[in-house]
Every structure is written in C-alpha cells, then in structure tokens.
Design a protein around this nucleic acid. Structure first.
Lengths: 205, 205
DNA sequence: GTCTATACATCGATAGAC
DNA sequence: GTCTATCGATGTATAGAC
C-alpha cells in the first residue's frame, strides 16, 4: 500500500493512475448493473449511480461522456463476461457434445441476468448503438461459435442462420418465461441433435 | 352529425359518447405506435403524443391514468392485430402446412413492426406488466397456436416449449438482423419439418 | 479529479378553474 | 373533458474553486 515512488520507476506513476482509473470505471459499471437489476436497464439514474460509487453526479462525466457511453461500457463488459463464461470450454473431439455445452452455457448465461441479456441481445435503449470497439468483443464471441459449427461440419449460411435462431429462441423463452430456471436450458441437447440431424440430411453443396 | 336527442332514445346518448371516446382512444394508440417507430418504444413523449392528437399533454390523463396504462392499451391493441393477422388461416387438413403458414405469419408480423414486437414479446419498459384483460388477448393467440399443434399430434409440454422456442428464435433473428426482410421467414417450413420429425421420433407416452 | 453550484430542457404527473 | 399552471425528477452540461 506504499505510495512512495521507486527511483527510476518513473513510468509506474501514470500506470498506477491508469490502474486506479480503470478500477473506478469497473466499479461504476458494476454498480450500474446492480441498479439496472433493481430499476430496469432504462431506469438507471445517473444521480443514483453516483451515490453508489461515492461521487457527485457531475463527476461521472470524468469517466463517461454521456449515459449512452455508460451503456457502451456495460455492453463491452457484458460481452467480456460472456467470453469468460465460455472460456473453459475445450473441444472434446465430439462436435455434438461441444455444441450442446456451448448452447447450454449461452442459455444459462442469459437466464442468470435478464438485464444483461437485454442490453447484449435486444435493441431496447433508444439511441444506443455499440461502439466499434465494444462490438468487436461481441464479434469475438460469434467467431467462437462459428468455429464450433465449422468443427461439426456446418458452414452454409442458412445453416448458421438456423443455429443462431435456435440459440436465440432457447434464450428468449428461458429469460421470458423461466428466468433463473432451466426449463429451456434442459432442451439444449435435444435442439443440437435435432439441428445436426437436419443439417446433415441436406444434400452436400 | 346532429347533436339533438331523439325522444325516447335516451340510452343512445351515452352510447354515442362512449363511441366517440373509444374512437379517440384508438386514435391516441395509433399515434403512439407512429411515435414509437420514430423515437423508440421507450422514447414516446406524452407531449409529442398530445400534439399529434390535438390535445394538451395533461388532457391525455382523461384517457389514460399513466404512461404505463398507455403501454397496456398498446399491448392489447398489438395482440388484437396479431389475432387479425392470422385470422384468415383455415386448416387445410395438412397440419405441417398449417403450422408452416402459422409460423411464417408470426415471423412476418414481428418483422413488420419492430417496436410492436418489442412491446408484445420482450420485457423492455421498466415497470410495465400487462393487465389481466390485455393479457387475456395474448392468451387467446397462444391457444390458437396450441390448437394447431394439437392437430399435428403435439401436446407434450416439452414439445410445446420447443415449438415456442423455435418461433421465438426465428422472430428474434428476423427482427434483430433483417427487419422487414425474409431471411428467417424463409426458414419457416424447414423449421416446422425439422420440429415435427423430431417430435414424432420420440417414444409415445 | 472532484467538488459545489447552477443552469437548461424535458419528462410524467397533479391541482384546480372552466 | 380540456385547459393553464406548476411540481419534482431527470439527463445533460458548464463554471470555477481546490
């Protein structure tokens, strides 16, 4: 916890400042999620948020240019959480098994936090569009799914479209009708099997 | 346009008033949809809405107790539109064909109006929950779908859950990634065939 | 960076006159 | 039912001290 500078360690000072700043931003985003769970995603008040992080409302502008910029940071954060949520998945050599686990995770992830799901997968905040930097994280996740599909021999655009619709459908129903439960999570394997059977039955192109 | 009362036609006056009132409410709801298409569902301003229907903002409260009550009227209206959109579907005796047409209609309906889809199928407005009366209309539509499934020999809860997820997935992807288009509408038949094949392959209970 | 103080426009909602 | 007037809260933004 020493605040003393090491001689010759000059660059460490701005680094420490950057670390502190990043930590504060992380705290703000975390509290913003907490607020959204209480008042809805669109119901976040910047004054309430400032209270939670021991700041005055104008001081939030030292970290975010606008409320939409806060949503953008939350969007990036949520997508990073999604990547982390599926990070330990290692291919077993059985594509059907891998896809099933992948789908289960996605549905569970959405079910775990409805507001997060709303921000990541629904366009609900008027005027909000993710920045290219934040969107890149979302693309990274999509690529991970595409790689799994590729390993299962799925690459045609219509087949990929079908798969994304299946994932979206399971998550949507899970979130809307059984949040926190597993009524649709439980159908992940069935859906993947059904999907692969359908795709493999199509004539090769 | 006579305002004179007919002798002995006393009950017709409150009736006419009720009709006028209902017509005004219908106009307000219609303009609310138009506004939501421009500014987003959550972006509706009661002042803008009042302007569109030649009222001052507080006068809207003669028709709706709150903004949430307006959303409730829109929810009921949207579900009535959905019922009307599928009203001319008559069973052909071919359940697969009937289900396909049903799914196509649902997806197209959602694709036609993203904000309407958002209000009907997503929980996006903080604090909004449909009233029992409005929700009953939604249930009526669900029952229509359940009847079609029954005709196709589908009645198990897991199978119905799977079907609703398939519908939700197609509509979600269509709305999110190709609004107004038909990229996922075009997969309706494929999805229904895939679904019925899967369901009929399960052991009878 | 953070604060106090303040400003502005907009919002949903209410009171009370007519 | 409709109006005018007004309220409190909000998002947004800035000035200026420390």
């Amino acid at each position: 916890m020493s605040e003393a500078e090491q001689p010759g360690a000059e660059p460490s000072v701005p680094d420490r400042r950057a670390v502190r700043r990043a930590a504060k931003i992380a705290t703000i985003v975390e509290e913003a999620w907490a607020l959204s769970r209480a008042d809805g995603l669109a119901g976040i008040s910047l004054r309430d948020l400032a209270d939670r992080v021991d700041l005055r409302q104008p001081s939030l502008y030292a970290y975010f240019d606008s409320k939409l910029a806060l949503y953008d940071a939350m969007f990036a954060d949520g997508n990073r959480q999604l990547l982390a949520y599926t990070a330990d998945l290692t291919p077993t050599g059985n594509p059907e098994q891998d896809l099933t686990e992948f789908v289960s995770r996605i549905v569970r992830f959405s079910s775990d936090d409805v507001e997060r799901h709303q921000l990541l997968f629904q366009r609900t905040i008027p005027g909000f569009e993710p920045s290219p930097e934040s969107y890149a994280i979302a693309i990274e996740f999509l690529n991970r799914g595409a790689a799994l599909l590729q390993a299962a021999g799925v690459s045609r655009a219509e087949d990929v479209d079908l798969f994304t619709a299946l994932c979206a459908g399971l998550t949507h129903q899970q979130v809307a009708n059984d949040p926190g439960g597993d009524r649709w999570v439980a159908q992940a394997r069935r859906v993947v099997t059904m999907f692969l059977t359908e795709v493999r039955q199509q004539p090769r192109e």
